[in-house]
């Protein structure tokens, strides 16, 4: 098996005439935390969705655990261990918290539910309540927990800190580090570039659907030109 759990080559995504992603390449080494950062509309979500099989790329190749999965539908990729925590959390508000977690384990026995409750005790307390009753931060924990139940070997997170209070953002990043420390590879997409680059082994800066820069997270952050050009408006 190759050293990289995910390899994306020359990926392009378009919606009708809109070209959202134009020839993006990157890799996620096994066990690493890699981040894609970029402003609104840079193409981050399109990349995540193309990698996880939710949208069809117009060209390019996605290799996951040594297998070409470019045309594999999303539900099959989940079974293979590639699991997405979608933008905006997408929890199922009309189902209970427990049901949300059970659905995360749709293809497994759901045996990891207890582990997730241990990690997020607040979810255990409210397991019988509708997921829609959770606060934004708690919903993000549920979305991450739900992905964990699926036993991913690669977790894709699309702007997990979006709309959360700074303290909760800290919590989210702590959880991501824990997940990574437990051996799961992570691809993190963020607008909160400073936080993401600080946490990541390797970062890619996206602009208008293309990779503008890439390098170790700390190096990108240290480069004032990059910060000014691409990340200037970011806070954190």
């Amino acid at each position: 098996m190759s050293e990289d759990i995910l390899t994306v080559e020359d990926l392009a995504v378009s919606y009708g005439r809109v070209q959202a992603v134009r020839g993006v390449s990157f890799t996620v080494p096994r066990g690493a935390l890699v981040t894609l950062v970029g402003a609104n509309g840079a193409g981050k979500t399109s990349i995540i969705n193309a990698v996880s099989g939710v949208v069809r790329p117009s060209s390019g190749r996605v290799t996951f655990q040594g297998k070409d999965v470019t045309r594999t539908p999303a539900h099959k990729l989940v079974r293979q261990g590639l699991v997405q925590v979608p933008e905006g959390r997408q929890i199922l508000a009309s189902l209970t918290i427990e049901e949300n977690l059970q659905l995360g384990g749709w293809h497994t026995s759901g045996g990891r539910t207890e582990e997730v409750y241990d990690r997020f005790p607040v979810l255990r307390e409210r397991r019988r309540l509708l997921a829609g009753s959770l606060s934004g931060g708690e919903q993000q924990m549920l979305a991450i927990g739900r992905a964990l139940v699926a036993e991913p070997s690669l977790m894709l997170l699309d702007e997990p800190s979006m709309g959360l209070a700074p303290k909760v953002v800290d919590e989210v990043f702590r959880v991501i580090q824990e997940i990574r420390a437990a051996g799961t590879s992570v691809l993190l997409v963020e607008q909160n570039a400073r936080r993401a680059l600080r946490a990541a082994d390797h970062g890619y800066v996206l602009a208008s659907g293309e990779v503008a820069r890439s390098g170790p997270g700390a190096e990108l952050l240290a480069d004032d030109a990059i910060v000014a050009a691409y990340l200037g408006l970011e806070t954190g």
Binding site: V54, H75, V78, I91, S94, L103, W106
Partner: peptide
């Protein structure tokens, strides 16, 4: 399990897909 999946599809097909539901 099937019932849960049905309700998930009812509420949000995209989210259901991402969870691994066909």
């Amino acid at each position: 399990r099937l019932g849960r999946a049905m309700r998930a599809v009812a509420e949000n097909p995209r989210a259901a897909t991402v969870l691994g539901i066909d």
